[in-house]
Design a protein around this nucleic acid. Sequence first.
DNA 1: CACATGCCTTACCATATGGTAAGTAGTAAA
DNA 2: TTTACTACTTACCATATGGTAAGGCATGTG
Lengths: 201, 201
Amino acid sequence: MSNTKQALLDVAESLFAERGFYGVSIANVADELGLTKQALLHHYGTKGQLYGAVLERISRDFSNAIKRVADNDQDPSARLADFLIELFQRSLDNPTRDLLLMRELLDNHERAKQADAWYLRDFLKSLVGLLTECPKWSDASSAQAFAAVYQLVGAVAYFSVSAPTLTGIGGKLGYRQVSDAFMPQIKQTVSAVVASGPPSS
Amino acid sequence: MSNTKQALLDVAESLFAERGFYGVSIANVADELGLTKQALLHHYGTKGQLYGAVLERISRDFSNAIKRVADNDQDPSARLADFLIELFQRSLDNPTRDLLLMRELLDNHERAKQADAWYLRDFLKSLVGLLTECPKWSDASSAQAFAAVYQLVGAVAYFSVSAPTLTGIGGKLGYRQVSDAFMPQIKQTVSAVVASGPPSS
DNA sequence: CACATGCCTTACCATATGGTAAGTAGTAAA
DNA sequence: TTTACTACTTACCATATGGTAAGGCATGTG
């Protein structure tokens, strides 16, 4: 991949995350690099293809990260925690991607519905698998395990995209404090969920 | 408020939730009612004002719901659960609003940052207040309480906006099962959080 | 040298968009 | 009957947008 092509992808990822698909014109992206939009169209045939390339790269990075975590072999509950902490760390390191993926969840039901293409699919499958390996969860239905796991993933994703707003409300210091408190809190919740098993109906 | 004005607001809310501010033109909204966009501009001077009116109505409804729950006087942990269940119910009843508010969280940091205008502000304040009234949380920092509460709110909001995607993946039946499992799970997590207090550092 | 190929530009275009201006039909008060 | 107001409409416009067409320029390659 050429240098410009890569640079266009970077800019596009950042702008799409910030303002969404409709909020960004291809001219906006090209301008950022001092190019014309036709230069962009030379590398990526249409706006849709550019957006697709952005998603594809994210998806690729995501699967790699999953594999990395999946390869360690502790007990299920520890790996469960590791998975979620990996997710959380990635969110803190690269919050723009969470923005973009959240937008994708809102906008593109059609694409998201194709389970194969959905970036979270393998991740959730791994998590549910790990949870049902835990003693208290061995008899839980997959729907129960999924609900438990999705609750945790959702908490992290929502917190991540809230960063700008929370910073605005609490100031940088306030946000920092909450952010510091969030990670241990999630860990503790994971432990509690693992330890207590599915809710008794 | 005139009949048409109300109808325009309804359509706008639904479309903005579905496609976002930039994804909807005022002509789209007006067309839905067989009107011209100038009819819309007659009632709401600009597109931005229309969007503002949509948010304002949601915010109003939201505060009313908060007051309703705040008026019952059980013990803190039960009211905490009530608050979150109210939130969850509202989400299930009216998922489009969650979409719209999530978009607002992503798009409009400036508006969201004005704490006064942020729809969740009072809600979160109530929740944090209730949590710190619980015995185990009396010594927790406000950042800790906020992190704990935000985790729960985020879980619910994220689940709500995931509905279309989850339905697409698991089918209507699968989504129904997960959705049924989600509410008890959240309740249990609330209990666990309240009971265990902030994580020991 | 001729010629192709990759990267980019200027020109151009059809369409959509938010918004203004001006006017029309109906209704109600003076 | 005039006046005024509400709820619209048709006409129009400047701007932005995604995309096409065609060409320039550099770097190889035969």
